[in-house]
Each structure stands twice: as structure tokens, then as C-alpha cells.
Amino acid sequence: MPHDHHTEPPSDLELRVKSLESLLVEKGLVNPEALNEIIDTYENKVGPMNGARVVAKAWSDPEFKEWLLRDATAAVKSLGYVGRQGEHLQVAENTPKIHNLVVCTLCSCYPWTVLGLPPAWYKSAPYRSRAVSEPRAVLAEFGTVLEQQVNIRVWDSTSEVRYLVLPLRPTGTDGWSEERLSHLVSRNSMIGVELARDTEAVDT
């Protein structure tokens, strides 16, 4: 695993967390079943498959795409994805001339309703510091190299507005169903650090 100094916490930290949880439950401030419900929601129910469905529909349905770019909050709601950290959505469309990249330099703002919780790197100091000042170098670290004439738009999520990238539809996907297309939509392509997967990534 890459330099992940997050994964080996001192054991006193584990104890501190356990004690705090016990205290909150003992005081009746936290219902343990509600706690499990919250964790289960974000660990198992909400995730990038939601966003992938939004993107695949936008690739397939021009009217939905037009709605998504005009009023992403309403268009995404129509697919049933609503809730925390998805109250105000904006979709940024990639084109052959424009590539979009999303960051939150101040904390970790991220569109939970369509992508779930952010990956560790999205919340890390290297990504948060560099995505705005050297996006091409950041993209290169994800293996994404764009032609020099492609314009880069970086979206710094400083308000409660959450950003989702609509990646370019890969070539060679004419006639694909939305379901099949959705497998090409990686989480990273909706943050903008990668392009959508190419067709070889999907079993035919």
C-alpha cells in the first residue's frame, strides 16, 4: 500500500474512540442502532454506483443530460439520490476541449449522494494543496495525461454546492445500454482525476 500513515494509529487512539463512543451511549446521547444505521448507509448503501448511473443516463438520454447540466440537484433527485452532502449539486461536463477536476482545498467537501464518502487521497494535504496550483502534475500522478491544448477547469468546493464531473463517453460504445455504460464510469472519472474506463475494461 502507498505511504498510508493513516492505517497504523497508536492504540491509545483506538481506546480514546472506544471510550468516547461508550460514554455517548451511556449518557443516552447516541442510540447505538442509529449509529449502526449511519455507518451502514455510507459503507454499504451510498457510493459511486449512484453517480455512475447518473452519468450513464446522461450519456444515453440528451434530455436528461440537458436537465442535469441546468439543474443537477433536481435531475439527480429524479433518480432517487437525495440527502446529506447532495443538497446543492452542479455537474461540470468534460468536452474534447475542457477537462474538469474537483477538489476541496479547505476540508473534504464531496457529493456524498452520488459518490459516497471521499477516498483518503481526496482528503489528503498533497491533493488539497496541489490540485488548484498544478492540476496537470496531479492528473499525471493518476496516469492521466491531457493534450496541452485541453483547458483545465478546477472546481474548489468552498460552499455547500457539490460538484460532479460528467466524463466524456468513451468511443466504441454506440448502442450500449445504460447499465453496461455505467461500468465504464469510475469514481475517479467523476472527480476528474481520470477519464472514463475504456471499453476493454468491461466484459462483453
Binding site: M1, P2, H3, D4, H6, T7, P9, L13, E14, V17, K18, L20, E21, L24, L29, V30, N31, A34, L35, N36, I38, I39, Y42, E43, G47, G116, L117, P119, A120, W121, S124, P126, Y127, R130, V138, E141, F142, S186, R187, N188, V193
Partner: peptide
Amino acid sequence: PINPEAEEQEPVFHTEWERRVFGITMAA
């Protein structure tokens, strides 16, 4: 450097204590 973990391999929480901190923060 960013050193991202591969998308397909990264769990939502890396440790149990992270999972619990997330949960109690949201619940509180």
C-alpha cells in the same frame, strides 16, 4: 506526492476506529 490507493482496492474506512469516529460524529 499524492500516492492514491487504487480505486478498486480502497475500503470506505481503513480501520475500525475511523468507522466509529465517522458514526459518532454524524450521530452527535
